[in-house]
């Protein structure tokens, strides 16, 4: 089976030259959920940002093949149009742009890229209704400005709502559990699980094991100082929760 995404020897630095990613290798197949864990500052969010195309980082080496294309050469919007989705750790508030108008624009830009006609208003509204129910997003929030005045939980649910609307082949959830109470966490996880198919894949970037009680990963990776130093089954996450990262440190050092 073809990989959805293949990351080979990915190196990325800040504009001041500080290297954050120091050779990341990762392969994700359709139908899989991968978790990327690691202590603060290990490069987890950088990896998510580099994949989505944030300009703050400079890729100095390596390649990322997604959908058969080297996406490092694509603009952020073209990566999204190819089916990559990043759920932000800190979703941005955009006053004056309605959530609905924003999504409609996004969907139609993606459709245009794929040579499809704009979505019919009726179909769009039907989709909005279905998908917002999935994450229990109230209709009030749908028509409000993007994330403006949303609570932390509402912002994260809105991310999953957008993910549901855009139907990506690869979703990267960047610390989606941060700042969530247990109810919101359940709702978000439920949404992610419902959206899982045999054709798409999810990368869950997280600091804590907590989210992985609800979104069960097929593989857990530990990112350490810009590299994936250990990969294993879901039990690895539990071990990390139990023992912290220090035991791993010894293991890595002794390698």
């Amino acid at each position: 089976m073809e990989n959805i995404i293949t990351i080979k020897n990915l190196h990325a630095s800040l504009s001041d030259g500080t290297e954050i990613l120091k050779g990341v290798n990762l392969e994700v197949k359709p139908g899989e959920i991968h978790a990327i864990m690691g202590p603060n500052g290990s490069g987890k969010s950088t990896l998510a940002a580099v994949l989505a195309g944030r300009e703050d980082y400079i890729v100095t080496n390596g390649e990322v093949v997604f959908n058969g294309k080297n996406i490092l050469e694509l603009s952020p919007e073209d990566r999204a149009r190819e089916g990559l989705f990043l759920a932000f750790q800190y979703p941005v508030e955009i006053p004056g742009v309605s959530n609905i108008n924003f999504l409609k624009t996004a969907i139609n830009e993606i459709r245009e890229y794929k040579g499809m006609h704009p979505i019919a208003a009726k179909d769009f509204l039907k989709m909005v209704k279905e998908k917002s129910e999935l994450v229990e997003l109230s209709s009030k929030l749908k028509s409000r400005s993007v994330n403006e005045g949303f609570s932390g939980g509402e912002k994260k649910r809105n991310e999953i709502f957008q993910m549901a609307m855009l139907e990506p082949t690869l979703a990267i959830l960047d610390e989606t559990d941060s700042g969530l109470d247990i109810d919101a966490l359940r709702i978000v996880a439920h949404g992610v699980n419902e959206l899982k198919t045999a054709e798409n894949a999810t990368i869950v970037v997280t600091h804590y094991q907590r989210l992985l009680d609800y979104i069960i990963p097929d593989v857990v990776h530990v990112l350490w100082d810009g590299k994936i130093v250990k990969s294993g089954p879901k039990e690895l996450a539990l071990k990390l929760e139990d023992k912290g990262y220090d035991w791993l440190k010894k293991e890595v050092v002794s390698q």
């Binding site: 952020p76 999204a80 149009r81 955009i94 742009v97 924003f102 996004a106 830009e109």
Partner: peptide
């Protein structure tokens, strides 16, 4: 905000316009 819009598939010009 521009990056957020782009990351949802909205082109840079359309994003600026929005």
């Amino acid at each position: 905000a521009l990056f957020y819009l782009q990351s949802r598939g909205i082109g840079i010009d359309a994003a600026r316009g929005l």
